[in-house]
Computed example of a mutant assay.
Amino acid sequence: MTTNSQHSQGDRLRRPSGIRSIQLGDTKVTYVPDGVAQLSSRGWLPTSTEEEWAAHSAYLDDSGYLVASLGGLLVEHGERALLIDAGFGPQSFPAGEDGPIGAISGGTLLDSLARIGRSPADIEAVAVTHMHVDHIGWLWQPAPGTDRLPFAHADHLVSEEEWKHRHLLEGHGISQEMTAILEPRIRTVTDGEEIFPGVRVALSQGHTAGHASYIVSGGDGRRLIAFGDAMHTPVQVVHPEWSAVVDHDAERSAAYRRRLAEELSAPDTIGFGIHFADVPFGRARRDGAGGPATWEPVDA
């Protein structure tokens, strides 16, 4: 049975996000689109069942895929700007046969920044939640038609644990060549460290060995948790026990999602789901009857 929350979000659950912004006091956060990926429902979330997906069909597009937006989060404080994650970059791949990922394409992040009125030169640092290819795309690939890395001037902030265990990422498409390109610009960060005005690191390991979330506080009493790939789809708010097939530690990632769903139900807390179709900002809403939480978009 489809919930009222799913009905109210309509087609937003089945399309990638455009540019969306929220003001948190003196800090503005903006989703910066780069592209879109198709995720196989049961291939990506292998402990889910056909029966469960029948109840959550609102999350699937006409081809039966979950729609995963690709991009980054721009954090602006006055004239200063931080980017959290750097998209997939200027590349695309068709759907393979029977794999967990369907078609995937990127390449619009620089254009999206320009529409917001920012250039790569404005970005003082890029904070990476984790080193998977759809989060570091513009850090190792040059801008089309050039040999220039658009964020070569900026520190690349990666958790100490993620960088320490970077060898584990080779099975996820991170080649030694990519790592060599990134290494001169890497600055490792630690749990609780403030990396930008009002932005702190919060380790959230499980999806990768050093996965990090970033907590943004803007001075109006609200905070935003940019939780990276701790969740890939709003349906994981309903089913935090569903771990992704690529999670490094499925049990640990599920435990973190349960805690995260509780945090996101607080009235002063907003979540940012980088892959959450066209509902990237939201909170976990509970109906008061003891049932599971659902994702409620926040648009202001």
Rank of each mutant, 00 (worst) to 15 (best):
173 G>P: 08
196 F>W: 02
179 T>P: 03
46 P>S: 04
92 S>F: 11
164 K>I: 09
245 V>S: 00
58 A>W: 07
41 S>N: 15
260 L>N: 04
26 D>A: 15
183 E>P: 05
296 E>V: 00
177 E>H: 07
162 E>V: 11
3 T>H: 03
211 H>R: 03
166 R>F: 13
110 L>T: 00
233 T>A: 06
24 L>N: 04
286 R>H: 03
295 W>Y: 08
70 L>S: 06
25 G>D: 11
34 D>V: 02
65 Y>E: 11
297 P>N: 08
110 L>W: 01
103 A>M: 11
122 D>E: 11
296 E>C: 03
145 G>C: 14
114 A>F: 12
78 G>Y: 09
101 I>F: 06
215 I>K: 11
239 H>L: 13
94 P>W: 04
128 V>T: 12
264 L>E: 08
181 I>A: 04
68 A>D: 07
17 S>E: 13
85 D>E: 15
134 D>V: 14
99 G>L: 15
72 G>P: 02
134 D>N: 09
167 H>W: 06
92 S>D: 09
72 G>V: 12
287 D>Y: 09
130 H>V: 13
23 Q>S: 05
217 S>A: 15
43 G>T: 06
65 Y>P: 00
155 D>H: 11
61 D>H: 06
45 L>R: 03
221 G>K: 02
109 L>T: 04
40 S>A: 13
92 S>E: 14
28 K>W: 07
262 E>F: 14
138 W>N: 03
29 V>K: 04
180 A>W: 14
256 Y>C: 06
157 L>H: 10
9 Q>C: 02
26 D>P: 13
203 L>P: 07
288 G>N: 05
170 E>L: 07
173 G>L: 14
211 H>N: 12
292 P>G: 05
227 F>Y: 09
195 I>E: 01
118 R>E: 02
127 A>V: 12
116 I>D: 10
286 R>S: 03
111 D>Y: 12
281 F>Q: 02
118 R>F: 08
46 P>E: 05
94 P>R: 01
219 G>I: 00
212 A>N: 02
48 S>M: 07
67 V>P: 01
69 S>W: 10
166 R>Q: 03
165 H>F: 10
210 G>P: 00
49 T>C: 04
216 V>N: 07
51 E>I: 13
39 L>V: 07
263 E>C: 01
189 V>I: 03
115 R>G: 07
279 V>W: 01
21 S>E: 08
119 S>V: 11
100 P>A: 10
27 T>F: 00
91 Q>D: 14
200 R>V: 09
157 L>V: 07
79 E>I: 05
89 G>I: 00
54 A>F: 09
272 F>E: 05
95 A>D: 06
204 S>N: 03
5 S>D: 15
127 A>L: 08
151 F>A: 08
